[in-house]
Amino acid sequence: MHPNFLLVTLASAVAIFILTGLSALLATPRPTPPLTVDAARARLAQEFPDVAVSGVWLDPSGHAAVARASMRALVLFRVGDGYVARDLAWSALASAERKAGQVVAVFGDFAAPRAVFHPPPDAPWPPQLLPSPPSGDRQGA
């Protein structure tokens, strides 16, 4: 081991905090406007290219979307300035409890454990999906 290993490690840790602070200060993430139905459909088509989606629901935050494909729920959720997609059984999503205004979808995946939704208090759960347009109008990603 390098004799100055501890010193180099400490200096690196300080550099990490300075660089992270600078990246926050300079604020150069990608623009991530709230999802629209079209944007959600386009992203879902990219993530699940061979899957026919029957309807889409947008979270009021604009940071998540749910779509149904037969007995599966396709979930899109924002992480940082990007989006991540997972799927789970529709029944599992439907039975997720609403707590403190939130519904948590659990994926059983160490790499992406859960997505959080904020449905309006008076809205039903599972959410009511906006139906897909006729297949001729469907846009691929």
Binding site: L26, R30, G80
Partner: peptide, 24 residues
């Protein structure tokens, strides 16, 4: 590169949590 991204967002983008994770 961060400064360049500030001047021209098409050439570089940094997300603080992503940057922290990469460096860590």
């Amino acid at each position: 590169e961060m400064v360049l991204g500030k001047l021209d967002p098409k050439r570089a983008s940094y997300e603080p949590r992503d940057t922290f994770a990469s460096l860590t």
